[in-house]
Nucleic acid binder design. Structure first.
Lengths: 109, 109
DNA sequence: CTGCTATATAGCAATTTAGCTAAATATCGC
DNA sequence: GCGATATTTAGCTAAATTGCTATATAGCAG
């Protein structure tokens, strides 16, 4: 999953956010950045190669759109880590609960 | 949010996944990789500075744990983009539904 | 085919990164 | 304090990345 690498750059994250709202052509995207056109074009290429975005040609312009599926893959990896993290936390909570109940059951306190 | 940059590296993602399951000391983490200890140590540093992990010292070892909060921030950014994406898709669906109803109401077809 | 617009690629310089080995730091047992 | 263990920092090199400008490609208007 090379998408993580693509998302490491703030310019590319902005592009992703722009395209999450709606599709846009390369020129509109480039216009939003204080950066030479070719530089933005390269960012688009990285995003394309990561599978996070795709485009269709329309006359002379290329209309970019987000590829939800790839974005979802990244999302799910993140979610999986969080789930593991929280599951562990829950187990700890349950464990402490059991300890507490046992203590109370022992007539201690 | 520098955490995205930290997550760009596959070794660091593996470390995150390891720590999502449970906390571990630096040596255990390093042992899992076919890489010199100092190299792993540097990855740990990057993760630390990104706020994704933290550690506590215990005797001579440093016990690392995931910082769920930072992970959650990344997760939420991802989720926000997906939500935007899907919301737009829903609007399109609703729009098409309205079109279809209108057509049927027109007695066309 | 020519010129115009939209976009991408080539090639370059500066910066960053990931790996390595060697050395420093810190804790523990004596 | 000394030696052993655990871990990090320093300093290096090779490779990758980012930005730039100049050039190439592709469709459209005439």
């Amino acid at each position: 999953m090379d998408a993580f690498e693509a998302l490491a750059d703030p310019t590319r994250r902005e592009i992703v956010a722009m395209l999450a709202a709606r599709e846009r052509n390369a020129g509109d995207i480039a216009a939003r950045f204080d950066m030479a056109g070719p530089s933005v074009s390269r960012h688009l290429k990285v995003l394309r190669e990561s599978g996070l975005i795709a485009y269709r040609a329309e006359a002379t312009s290329r209309i970019y759109r987000l590829n939800e599926q790839r974005l979802d893959e990244v999302q799910q990896w993140m979610q999986a880590q969080l789930d593991l993290c929280r599951e562990r936390f829950d187990r700890l909570g349950a464990h402490l609960d059991r300890m507490k109940e046992k203590e109370e059951g022992d007539g201690k306190g």
